[in-house]
């Protein structure tokens, strides 16, 4: 474990907590894409299939449980909670996630480190996570109103992956033959997709104006 990875995991945890706080305290999910939240629940399910078979460390297992529990809780809140679901903007959140899942599944079947079920699912989860934010970014472009909590949630979600890239550089430099092209390429694409959001988020922070994404 290195400081980059620990900070990354904590940033990721913070993003989920910010979102859960928003939904749980003000009972609203305005501006949040259910599609992205469902994709994240699928990402964690496919990535943590080894939760019962491969014990890495208590930290690793506890964090996997937290990410699985929180991602499914958010989907449950947005779908079934009688108050929260009213603020879900289903007419605007129309990104069809099958368009993201199928190519990622095909790619995972073609490009993976080992052709086993668990490994293909693990690989699929990295490709899918790279693009899972797209429905959310599309929704932001459409609704244009980004409240602070949503903006912070997306910022933290993007920052965690950028920190993982620092972790991967650090491990590549310090650990002999540590090479994992699949997470590296996926993580790079994921971080780049946040690029323009980071740019506008930084501008809104610098000019102290409300965050607005161009149409």
């Amino acid at each position: 474990m290195n400081i980059f990875r620990l900070t990354a995991d904590m940033t990721h945890l913070m993003s989920v907590i910010v979102l859960l706080l928003k939904i749980h305290t003000i009972k609203s999910c305005a501006g949040i894409s259910l599609k992205t939240q469902e994709l994240y629940a699928i990402v964690f399910t496919c990535r943590y299939l080894d939760i019962f078979t491969d014990f890495i460390s208590f930290y690793n297992t506890i964090m996997k449980v937290i990410f699985l529990w929180t991602s499914f809780s958010i989907v449950w809140y947005m779908r079934y909670h009688k108050i929260v679901r009213r603020s879900y903007d289903k007419d605007q959140d129309t990104f069809r996630h099958v368009f993201l899942m199928l190519p990622c599944l095909v790619l995972a079947l073609l490009i993976n480190e080992r052709f086993t079920f668990k490994e293909v699912m693990w690989t699929f989860s990295f490709y899918l996570e790279a693009v899972a934010i797209l429905p959310q970014l599309v929704l932001l472009q459409r609704t244009r109103n980004i409240d602070n909590l949503t903006g912070q949630y997306i910022f933290l979600l993007g920052a965690y992956r950028a920190l993982y890239i620092l972790n991967w550089i650090y491990r590549y430099v310090t650990e002999p033959n540590y090479v994992h092209w699949i997470p590296w390429m996926s993580g790079l694409v994921q971080t780049l997709l946040y690029g323009d959001f980071f740019y506008y988020y930084f501008l809104s922070w610098k000019n102290n104006v409300k965050l607005q994404l161009p149409a």
Partner: peptide, 10 residues
């Protein structure tokens, strides 16, 4: 940390 075939990152 990384045994063969195990993924030690979240």
């Amino acid at each position: 940390e990384e045994d063969e075939g195990k993924h030690d990152e979240l």
